[in-house]
Computed example of a mutant assay.
Amino acid sequence: MSAANRRSRPRNSSRTKIDTDKINELLSKLQQVVPELRSRRSCTNKALTSKVLQETCDYIRYLQREVHDLSNQLLQLLDTADIDTNQAAIIRHLIA
């Protein structure tokens, strides 16, 4: 290997490299919290790893939509409820 190739390659350090065991551990944790993945047991191949990551992204997007929808519902309730204006303002500020 030439000196130029050695210089252009990233150094193997504990801060930049995650080993396979750690990746498998993290994928396993994702499988435990994402409902669509709870029934799957292992993440040993790339296709399954890709599926875990895709399902996780989909689940996060779903949760974001849920938060948005629930926030809108709460704002609508605040508009119609008989609630102290200061309390309503605080809640609106927290939602925004």
Rank of each mutant, 00 (worst) to 15 (best):
Q87H: 10
P10N: 04
P10A: 09
I83L: 15
I23V: 12
D58E: 09
S13P: 02
K29P: 00
C57R: 14
E25G: 03
A47D: 15
H93L: 04
S8I: 14
D19Y: 05
Q32T: 04
P10R: 06
D82W: 00
Y59S: 03
V34R: 03
K29M: 13
D79V: 06
R7H: 06
I23R: 01
K51C: 07
I91L: 15
E36I: 00
L75F: 01
V34C: 01
I83Q: 13
L94S: 15
V33K: 02
N24Y: 05
I91V: 14
R11K: 08
S50Q: 12
R15F: 08
D58Q: 06
Q54T: 11
D79H: 07
Y62T: 08
N45E: 07
Q31A: 14
R7F: 10
Q73T: 06
L37N: 02
L78S: 06
S39I: 04
L27I: 05
R65S: 13
L37C: 06
R7V: 13
D21A: 12
P10V: 01
S39Y: 11
I60F: 10
S50E: 10
Y59T: 03
D19Q: 06
E55N: 04
S39A: 10
I95R: 04
Y59Q: 01
R6L: 14
V34M: 05
H68L: 13
S13L: 15
A89Y: 08
I90N: 14
N72R: 08
T85N: 11
K46A: 12
L53W: 04
D69K: 03
N12Q: 05
